[in-house]
Nucleic acid binder design. Structure first.
Length: 822
RNA sequence: GGGGGCGUAGCCCAAUUGGCAGAGGCAAGGCGCUUAAACCGCCUCCAGUGAGGGUUCGAGUCCCUCCGCCCCUACCA
């Protein structure tokens, strides 16, 4: 495509200038109102792909727009630079992950610069930077001191072939290792956890006030999974002094409990198991605990439809409602990690229990009367209670209350709230992450690394071998150390931290990257926090956002972030995915469309306009055969802007006339439309409004009638200002050529519409008869209902159509329409 | 199985939140410019809103049922 100007040259010129002049560097004591705009910091995967481009186009638009609104805008950039892909690449290449990472970072950085996205590069943060690691380790130790970090045994994915632990994403769908193909086993290891569950209630409650997409809020609520119920005792039938403790949300269905179930991991299982059943139970437990999660759930796509495997333990417990003994089963559909790890089973009102009871031939007793048209199975809806003694006739809510009282009196029942949310397992048996700063001494046990010995850095002289085992585990120079307490021989923790720990607080370091020795100075960070606009992908809707919320709350509580808000991200926007022939565009799928070719044709500005224009920013983008042509069209739009700004064959006239006024009105309405579009994430309509405006100005300027000079200058300048956050290079170039010596277009104030020009002098009012349009009237916008009605009924066309008939009813909605019903 | 989203011209999308279905772009066609083509400028064509029902003076918009596609989640008692 032939362009009217040298796109690459213009873009390079302005990119260099923004960088050299530090246009978007901002100080913490800037006197202007503040705005913190943040795109999720990326994993350094190499040159940018369209997903990045889309993300940074939106982010940069926010930065430039808010700057023009007079704000001091914090716009930082950095890298989530630890992680498995670099480790895998290093294994493959036989090199060090840092080499790979640094190279990919440089590529991505130059990509975002080429896009024209602007940042305060002085604030750049990398997770693998030794200083950042030092702060990450400081945070870990602060959590440990505050009781928020603890060690416990937990299962990991163990590959017997590689003799190492695998990350979840290294386990294939069939439960085998992606590298060796061996069947992955579960193995228990001592691992570190963060007590995020201490914050479950607050994390749940604070969701309400966030200006986030509803679906993200819903996902977080579901993930936390609060449920209220009763915990109570089921006495053992042959030893009334002992009891099995269970949790239920439906105590009202207690009369229907026909058996009880314990999880395979339940501590009482051995005691409950009779000699006759020991072999069956052992087989069940073996299968449930050694098999991977995948194997356990692979057989079906429906949780409720899963095969209900279980075994009778040989023991009985007493149902406290009926005082009758019921059998105790062990089954893998009961989880050891939730509630008490044991349940009362009520097949009539719980579909999982129903499925199990059906398979194992256990009795089913209804306690809630299902509706007449109910087609069988478990019924969990509301209804009158039956077969339920003192609860008969009550609905679910009332029966729950009664049952709860009853259990409190007869079965040590207490009201209990449980959460689906588990504590955060942060240990990773990997090399390319931040080492956990702990030392193990034979004499003094677990000892934190003293502050003056931080950061604990991974050694450089390692070879990543094909086994995938972390070299930290075997590197003697790293592992062997001395105990900080006694100086005796000791060993370092070989695990590293989950990379989600790095992304849980990076936004705080961005706000204050200058203070040494502490993760950040709360006084400095408070100047920017919370983030006013966070932008990223929907794939981080749950974990990253939840962990970041947890970190900040914990920071405030343990004194690391005194005075900061307890929520990090006030507003969140999640952009749509780019998909190519139906599937998500991603590096792992190898279906990326590189931006470079478009830089050569339509330039960064053209590509930015495309991403803004192609559809609503929250929607997915289908990259199709036509996309190329749409991108060309976006370049064409910018070319037309360029030509118009350079057009010098205008028939100027001196006194403004009606045509000039009409264009000015259109212009000021465009200011409103574009501003509104930018405020409510309707970038596609904002671009469309500018395209429309361009058409209007262009026709006007090229007409024989001509244009008034001041009005034309105003129109073109205003259009450049409105376009500046979207196409920053072209607008900067044109502004400079139109206003030599003036400040950059980006440093000008955002245009403000003149209300007198926005207001419509008259509005077209539609007159309908029985919903059918019969006449159009030009009326004043402030017309009253009565005025609208009489104007409509007086219109000759309407009089003619009515032909003397008396309207049954007249609905007047001035100044929009009048509907006459006859 | 549960939760959520989407379906409007050939295609991508608008529609002041219940008030004339069309802003913008792509594609197609035409005219002008051109020796010619491209570029450029101008113009034209195209749907009654996935299907059915309901509420309403009035439904793309609200409610119900169904169809199709997509995303999230997964035995949490």
């Amino acid at each position: 495509m032939a362009r009217p100007f040298n796109v690459a040259q213009v873009e390079a010129k302005w990119q260099a200038r923004w960088l050299d002049e530090g246009t978007y560097e901002v100080d913490n004591d800037d006197p202007r109102d503040r705005f913190y705009a943040l795109c999720m910091y990326p994993y350094p995967s190499g040159t940018a792909h369209q997903g990045h481009i889309r993300n940074y186009t939106f982010g940069d638009l926010v930065v430039r727009y808010q700057t023009m609104r007079g704000k001091a805008v914090l716009s930082p950039f950095g890298f989530d630079s630890f992680g498995l892909p670099a480790e895998n690449a290093a294994i493959k290449a036989g090199s060090h992950p840092r080499l790979f990472t640094d190279a990919r970072m440089a590529e991505l950085k130059s990509s975002v610069r080429r896009l024209g996205a602007v940042y305060d590069w002085r604030r750049e943060v990398h997770s693998h930077d030794p200083q950042y690691m030092k702060y990450a380790q400081t945070i870990f130790l602060a959590f440990l001191k505050a009781g928020l970090a603890y060690r416990a045994e937990a299962p990991v994915n163990w590959c017997p072939g590689c003799a190492t632990v695998l990350a979840n994403e290294q386990v294939l769908a069939d439960g085998t290792c992606e590298r060796s193909g061996d069947l992955v086993e579960r193995k228990n290891l001592e691992q570190w956890f963060f007590k995020i569950t201490d914050y479950a209630e607050e994390l749940l409650n604070d969701i309400d006030a966030l200006e986030w997409p509803e679906r993200v809020k819903t996902m977080q609520r579901n993930w936390i999974g609060r449920s209220e119920g009763v915990e109570f005792d089921l006495p053992l039938a042959d030893d009334g002094a002992k009891a099995l403790r269970v949790f239920t949300t439906r105590p009202d269905t207690g009369f229907g409990m026909t058996y009880a179930v314990v999880a395979p991991e339940h501590p009482l299982l051995a005691e409950l198991t009779t000699d006759g059943e020991r072999a069956h139970v052992a087989a069940l437990v073996e299968r449930a605990t050694s098999a991977s999660e995948l194997e356990r759930t692979a057989s079906s796509d429906s949780g409720a439809g899963l095969e209900k495997r279980g075994a009778f333990t040989g023991s009985f417990v007493i149902n406290p409602f009926t005082n009758q003994p019921v059998p105790v089963y062990v089954a893998d559909y009961v989880l050891g990690t939730y509630g008490t790890g044991a349940i009362m089973a009520v097949p009539a009102e719980d579909e999982r229990d129903f499925a199990f009871a059906t398979v194992h031939g256990l009795p089913i007793v209804r306690t809630t009367q299902p509706p007449v048209d109910f087609d069988g199975g478990a019924y969990s809806g509301d209804g009158a209670h039956i077969n339920s003694g003192f609860m008969n006739g009550l609905n679910v809510i009332d029966a729950k209350r009664k049952a709860t009282e009853y259990l409190a009196e007869h079965a040590a029942g207490v009201v209990k709230v449980n959460y689906r949310l588990r504590d955060w397992l942060v240990s990773r048996q990997r090399f390319w992450g931040c080492p956990i700063p702990i030392i193990y001494c034979d004499v003094h046990g677990m000892v934190p690394v003293p502050a003056d010995q931080l950061p604990v850095l991974a050694p450089d002289d390692v070879t990543m071998d094909k086994s995938g085992q972390s070299p930290l585990a075997t590197h003697e120079g790293f592992r062997n150390t001395t105990c900080p307490v006694c100086g005796g021989p000791a060993r370092r923790e070989a695990d590293t931290m989950d990379t989600f720990t790095d992304s849980a607080w990076y936004y705080l370091r961005y706000a204050d990257p200058f203070t040494p020795n502490v993760p950040f100075d709360p006084v400095e960070a408070a100047k920017w926090m919370p983030v006013d606009q966070y932008i990223g992908g929907i794939e981080h809707a749950i974990l990253h956002l939840l962990y970041a919320r947890f970190y900040l709350k914990a920071f405030v509580d343990i004194g690391l972030a005194t005075g900061l808000p307890r929520e990090p991200f006030r507003r969140l926007f999640t952009q749509g995915m780019i998909r190519l022939s139906g599937s998500k565009m991603s590096k792992s799928k190898g279906n990326l469309i590189a931006p470079e070719k478009y830089y050569e044709t339509v330039g960064a500005d053209g590509l930015r306009i495309f991403h803004l224009f192609v559809g609503p920013p929250a929607d997915d983008v289908d990259w199709t055969d036509q996309t190329e042509e749409v991108i060309e069209g976006c370049g064409r739009f910018l070319d037309r802007v360029y030509r118009l700004a350079q057009y010098d064959e205008v028939n100027y006239h001196e006194t403004p006339d009606d045509a000039d006024l009409a264009v000015r009105q259109a212009l000021h309405r465009t200011i409103v439309k574009v501003t509104d579009g930018l405020e409510r994430w309707s970038y596609n309509t904002a671009v469309a409004a500018l395209m429309e405006m361009l058409n209007t100005i262009s026709k006007w300027a090229r007409s024989d009638h001509g244009a008034e000079r001041a009005a034309l200058d105003e129109a073109i300048d205003t259009m450049l200002l409105l376009l500046a956050p979207m196409a920053p290079h072209l607008t900067a170039e044109l502004w400079e050529s139109r206003h030599p010596g003036d400040a950059s277009v980006h440093l000008h104030q955002w245009p403000v519409a003149d209300p007198a020009l926005v207001r419509e002098a008259t509005v077209t009012m539609v007159v309908e008869i029985n919903g059918k349009v019969r006449a159009r009237l030009e009326v004043a916008p402030g017309l009253s209902e009565d005025g609208a009605q009489s104007a409509a009924l007086a219109d000759p066309t309407i009089v003619a159509v009515l032909a003397g008939a008396t309207p049954k009813r007249v609905v007047a909605r001035p100044p929009r329409l009048v509907n006459i019903i006859v």
